[in-house]
């Protein structure tokens, strides 16, 4: 296979995205050309775009900033902290000395409840569940063979066909070294052929809880199961397994 085909696929990837078959072909060609990065042409297209882009004249809307600020970096910061620490950090400690103990306790409870509701309201997963009419949800189950390596993992996944968007939450997912391996999501779509849809790769950090947006490479219309594997950096087109976590959604 010539470099021309590799570069043609990379340029398509950078400008319009690839079909399932093209994805497989590109992965195969990249495996044969380890000195070529999939990002090369995507960065080139981005640089070209920037060079021609008029200087942006609008700030990011305040509503989006607030929503994003509350996620604190999608689990990297706030979501990685225990919920209790978020609550206490928002409560002025000196107030407790100004009120009778019972009143202070009630105030603390109200602040805690308010903060929790505020956080949930701005959590992208909660937002999707609140706003999309067709969200499916499922909790992660550890595959028997993986229970030794992944004993304490928990969390859930939500997906909306209408929005073609979803999120995964994990607690205690073992940290990976992105230079050696990455987690990869697969979506089994009952309306598709036997091949699951690549849902994107992601990394776990040491914060304990992470929230990951689903990055499905193809349209998903009827997710029957979400499966997590651990693959080479950048992921693979066809996984040889093993499966680590599975979530089978029910309408909810």
């Amino acid at each position: 296979m010539s470099d021309d085909r590799l570069f043609e696929l990379l340029s398509l990837d950078a400008t319009h995205g690839l079909s399932d078959a093209e994805e497989r072909e590109l992965e195969s060609l990249l495996a044969q050309n380890p000195d070529v990065s999939r990002d090369d042409f995507a960065l080139a297209a981005a640089a070209f775009d920037l060079a021609l882009l008029e200087e942006p004249d609008q700030e990011l809307p305040a509503s989006i900033r607030k929503s994003l600020a509350s996620t604190g970096g999608a689990g990297i910061v706030l979501f990685g902290q225990p919920a209790s620490s978020r609550v206490s950090s928002n409560r002025p400690p000196s107030r407790a000395h100004w009120f009778p103990i019972g009143l202070a306790a009630a105030a603390v409870a109200l602040v805690a409840l308010g903060t929790m509701l505020w956080s949930e309201k701005r959590d992208p997963m909660q937002q999707l569940m609140a706003n999309a009419p067709d969200v499916v949800r499922a909790t992660w189950t550890i595959v028997d063979a993986a229970k030794l390596m992944y004993p304490d993992v928990s969390g859930e996944v939500v997906w909306s066909d209408a929005r073609q968007a979803g999120y995964m939450r994990f607690r205690n997912l073992p940290v990976n070294d992105p230079s050696k391996s990455q987690y990869q999501l697969w979506i089994v779509d009952s309306k598709r052929d036997k091949h699951p849809v690549d849902g994107g790769v992601f990394d776990a950090n040491a914060d304990g809880e992470i929230l990951i947006p689903i990055d499905s490479k193809l349209r998903v219309d009827a997710p029957a199961a979400f499966v997590i594997t651990r693959e080479q950096p950048g992921g693979v087109v066809v996984s040889a397994g093993p499966h680590l976590l599975i979530a089978a959604p029910a309408k909810g």
């Binding site: 995205g17 995507a42 960065l43 297209a45 981005a46 640089a47 499905s216």
Partner: peptide, 18 residues
Amino acid sequence: KTFVAMIARRRLIDRLRK
């Protein structure tokens, strides 16, 4: 800035394709 634009473009292209 170019890296940010690349991540943004990838996500936007994915959304358009889907």
